[in-house]
């Protein structure tokens, strides 16, 4: 079918520079613009739309590496991995790996860590809402049922452990944050454990203490109440108190996972 061939040719030109001349053969030259220039307008536009999208997904990385570097890297990424989904929210996950492989960033892999955080933020915004458990229902369980209790973080939660101070770097680039740390004073080598989750229309991002981190990891691994008591002993009530009040624990189940 001629339409299929035509569309194949044109979309190839959008994402492959060397296909531009071929696609231009099917386009009229008019006025002061050649047919190649006309296809080029579309290549620029498609790239520009996706570049805008990547900029909005990775705003801190954008500031860190600057317009020029970000633009070039993004354009190469766009050509290497054109979108395949009609849902634009799915686009751009692979950009993290693309940065990780970039020769110029091998000495600055902490930028890639920031990119991971930024993608997790985007993913958290696009996670489906869920219904919180009614914790009053915990009363009246038998001892055996109590030991088999398991808890869940919000579905949007991401636990990110980084060898870089990703949370501080991120905060330092938030214009409206009143007490933002000065970027120049951040110790990039400081490891940070970050929890990220969405609560209704808010996204929470916070660093965790080592204890809280270990506890939330155990929760995420679906350890039972009995196993949690074993692991955290008399610290457990306190760990739960903090986690509950911060909204880190969202629901529970009384039956073991399948």
């Amino acid at each position: 079918m001629p339409l299929l061939e035509l569309q194949h040719s044109l979309i190839s030109a959008l994402f492959q520079r060397d296909q531009l001349a071929e696609a231009a053969k099917r386009v009229k030259a008019q006025g002061s613009l050649s047919s190649e220039q006309r296809v080029g307008i579309y290549r620029n536009s498609a790239h520009g739309i996706l570049l805008d999208c990547l900029e909005s997904l990775y705003p801190v990385c954008f500031e860190l590496v600057g317009t020029e570097f970000f633009g070039r890297t993004a354009h190469n990424f766009i050509d290497q991995a054109p979108p395949t989904s009609p849902f634009l929210a799915d686009y751009g996950a692979g950009f993290v790996n693309h940065l990780a492989e970039h020769p110029a960033l091998q000495e600055m892999l902490w930028i890639v860590e920031v990119a991971k955080l930024e993608w997790a933020r985007h993913a958290a915004w696009h996670t489906v809402n869920q219904v919180a458990s009614d914790f009053a229902q915990l009363e009246g369980l038998s001892e055996a049922q109590q030991a088999e209790l398991r808890f869940q973080l919000p579905a949007s939660a991401h636990l990110i452990s980084s060898n870089t101070s990703i949370h501080s770097i991120w905060l330092a680039h938030q214009e409206e944050y009143p007490e933002k740390p000065q970027f120049e004073k951040i110790d990039l080598q400081e490891a940070q454990q970050v929890l990220l989750f969405r609560e209704q229309r808010r996204l929470h991002q916070t660093t965790l203490s080592t204890d809280d981190w270990a506890f939330l990891q155990a929760i995420q691994q679906q350890l039972s109440m009995g196993e949690l008591a074993e692991q955290f002993a008399d610290q457990l009530p306190w760990l739960f108190s903090v986690a509950m009040q911060e909204g880190w624990i969202y629901s529970f189940t009384t039956t073991p996972p399948a």
Partner: peptide, 16 residues
């Protein structure tokens, strides 16, 4: 994001 039916001038679309 950008899914809204406009065209883009493609700021730094220099082919590298």
């Amino acid at each position: 994001c950008a899914a809204n039916g406009h065209s883009c001038a493609g700021k730094a679309a220099k082919d590298s």
